[in-house]
Lab assay of single mutants.
Amino acid sequence: MFYPNSPQTSPQLTQIPYGQQYAMMQRQIQQPYHPFATTEPQARLYPYHYQGPIQQEQGGFITQQSTAASPQYVQMRVTPVDQSIMSGYPNQTANGSSSSSFNYNIHPQQQQQQQQQQQQLRHHAMPVGSVPLQDDRYRKQLIVNYLAPDVTSTDLHELFSRFGELDGARIIYDKQTNMSKGYGFVYFCHAEDAKEAVERMSGYEFHGKWLKVGYSTNPLNIVPSNSSPYVHAGSRGAAG
């Protein structure tokens, strides 16, 4: 039997160049792979992502010199942007860049009308829970959420009447099932009393439920100042 490094198959040491006398086997001759043993700084910083320098080929596509990437890492192929796409944008300079302001050559009167329309939209648009300043009635009506099913309009009136005089209180019921929808409205005579009720009743436990109280901004629920107070009856038909 002959071994790869046996004296019968191995040459004389004098015939082997210096430095390879003890590297006779194939696994010894093959050098191990060192990912950080390279002179390129990109490979030292990113050993798993770097795959060699990027070269520009004919046709405008950018390719990489090395083989496919590892399945664990996804390499994105980048193509140059066609400058003709950006030619339609206004205020574009000769080098292809555009300024931040756009001039669509709008007539001054049209621009003024658009600004007025935007101001009107901001004036009428009102986020949930906010209180408008032009109508004091919005500051007097509250919406009470997360009410228990057994709470009546009379219970709601008695709960909030300790903060001040009320114009009314009612629970909203479903017309088909005649069941409470879980929320109601309270109408105060003074805005200061309503503000105190919002601050003190939010998070209050009532009939096993934690109440959420806020201003009601729905104009359909506003009680006119010259109208008669609501009837605080315990029956659902009268309260709904």
Results as ranks from 00 to 15, higher is better:
Q75D: 03
C189F: 00
R44P: 00
Q56D: 01
D135F: 09
Q120I: 14
D193V: 08
T93L: 06
Q113I: 13
R139T: 01
E199N: 08
E40H: 00
M76R: 09
S153P: 03
Q134M: 00
R200W: 00
Q83L: 14
E192N: 06
V128Y: 12
Y187Q: 05
N95H: 14
A233S: 02
Q134H: 14
N5M: 12
Q120T: 10
N5G: 04
E165C: 12
S101L: 15
V74P: 14
F163D: 11
S228Y: 12
T38C: 14
S225V: 04
Q111V: 02
N221G: 11
S10H: 12
P229N: 02
R27Y: 11
S130G: 14
P132I: 15
S227I: 05
S161H: 11
I106N: 13
W210Q: 01
S161C: 02
Q31S: 11
A69C: 00
R236Y: 00
F160H: 00
L159T: 07
G203C: 04
K140D: 00
E205V: 02
Y146M: 06
G19Y: 12
P53E: 06
S98F: 15
Y48S: 05
A43T: 07
S70W: 14
Q31H: 10
T177F: 00
E205F: 15
Y187P: 01
P229C: 09
G96K: 00
S87L: 15
S97E: 15
T39G: 02
Q109D: 15
A148K: 14
Q8K: 00
A69Y: 02
V78M: 15
V223Y: 13
F2N: 14
P71R: 00
I143F: 01
Q72D: 04
G52T: 08
H124V: 10
I62V: 12
F160E: 09
A23F: 12
Q56L: 13
Q15F: 07
G208K: 13
R122L: 13
I85Q: 14
H207P: 08
Y204V: 10
Y230P: 00
Q58M: 11
A125I: 14
I171A: 01
M25C: 00
S66L: 12
Q15G: 04
T154Q: 00
S130V: 09
K212A: 07
D135H: 09
L159E: 14
T154E: 01
N5K: 02
Y48N: 03
P11T: 03
M201F: 02
Q120G: 12
L211N: 02
L142T: 13
S97I: 07
G19S: 05
G208Y: 01
V78W: 14
E40T: 04
Q72V: 09
S97Q: 11
Q114D: 03
E192S: 10
M25Y: 07
M179N: 14
Q134N: 01
Q12Y: 02
Q65T: 02
I171E: 08
I62H: 01
F36T: 10
N218L: 02
Q118G: 08
I172R: 06
I85A: 09
T67N: 07
Y3F: 12
Q111G: 02
S66K: 04
F163K: 10
K181L: 08
Q31F: 15
F160R: 07
Q116S: 08
Q112K: 11
P7G: 08
P11H: 14
L211M: 13
P32G: 11
Y230W: 11
S227H: 14
Y50W: 12
L156I: 04
A69D: 01
Q109G: 09
V186Y: 06
P127C: 15
G203S: 04
I54A: 11
Q119F: 15
S101C: 14
R162V: 03
G96F: 14
G96A: 02
Q56T: 11
S228P: 08
Q75K: 09
T63S: 12
Y138D: 00
E205M: 13
I171Y: 13
H124N: 09
Q92S: 13
Q15S: 04
G88N: 13
G129Q: 12
G182N: 15
Q110F: 00
T9C: 11
P35G: 13
I171S: 03
Q8S: 02
P17H: 07
Q141P: 06
F102H: 14
